[in-house]
Nucleic acid binder design. Structure first.
Lengths: 145, 145
DNA sequence: AATGTCCTCACCCGAAAGTATGAAATCGCT
DNA sequence: AGCGATTTCATACTTTCGGGTGAGGACATT
């Protein structure tokens, strides 16, 4: 959360610098002050909106990369398991099917605590906080169908 | 959907009014132009970011067809939504994206209790017991993708 | 005006999920 | 033989979810 605020701050600061650089040397001679202010407001409003939209998706938590193109690495990650162990993948699939931890424990013949351990570990590896988020991210990564 | 755009417009408009009110009567005498511009930029950037943060809404299976034109609202209602109301569908989509109830409440400008109500209702309609199960079933039914 | 649906919100309570920490057994690898 | 990864399980604790119930306002239909 905080990293985004900080990143956001830097972006804003950079834009402020840019605006100041453009300041009285270029625009002021051709535009009125109101239009200038309006432009500033619009640019920053849309920038803020874009940043807010881009960096608050739960599935993107932890990765601050900016996608400029439609990427191929997704298919590369399809075969990769993102460091998930076989058992964790198994639990993840059952989670995606909508089973509760207790049901998963029963299916895998292990204790509830074990399932919790697996899920906690895979949440760490996927960098998520909730099981629904894990399902969403795993689907993006192609870990599950 | 539109309510947020309209709300956004009003917020921006309100801020413009505020800025104009403050314009040359108050700040200009005490602050330099650079600081003034910086304030404008900051306020609008953060406003945009705030709006963008809440407007993390995907256009999904059902409404993707609606957005293109405006002539088939009837078809949209007759589309198979398994009896889910628009709001419930909205909550369901955000659940599928991995948001917590509190996050959904923040994004939709409603209280946590309201989100709980919606989710409980859609769980009843989908005949499921957990949110992960709801996501799984909704995906099967093609309500989300 | 009455009805029904939807959206909103509240409170309480129990269940499920998740965090933190530790630990033991197994297996592959060097 | 030691190391790391994996799997298993445990306890204790906090947070989130979900059920139950009720209720008021907005809106459209009848």
């Amino acid at each position: 959360m905080w990293r985004y605020i900080i990143l956001y701050g830097f972006v804003v600061a950079g834009l402020v610098v840019i605006m100041n650089w453009l300041d009285f040397h270029f625009l002021m001679h051709s535009l009125s002050m109101e239009i200038y202010l309006g432009l500033v407001a619009l640019i920053f409003a849309f920038t803020g909106g874009w940043i807010g939209w881009r960096y608050t998706r739960p599935s993107m938590a932890g990765s601050a990369q900016i996608e400029t193109t439609s990427d191929v690495p997704t298919t590369e990650l399809t075969n990769d398991t993102s460091g998930l162990s076989p058992r964790e993948l198994e639990v993840l699939e059952l989670i995606a099917m909508g089973f509760s931890n207790q049901e998963i424990a029963d299916k895998l013949f292990v204790s509830l605590n074990t399932v919790k351990s697996h899920s906690s570990n895979l949440f760490l590896k996927l960098d998520v906080k909730r099981r629904t988020q894990a399902v969403s991210k795993a689907r993006e990564l192609g870990l599950i169908h």
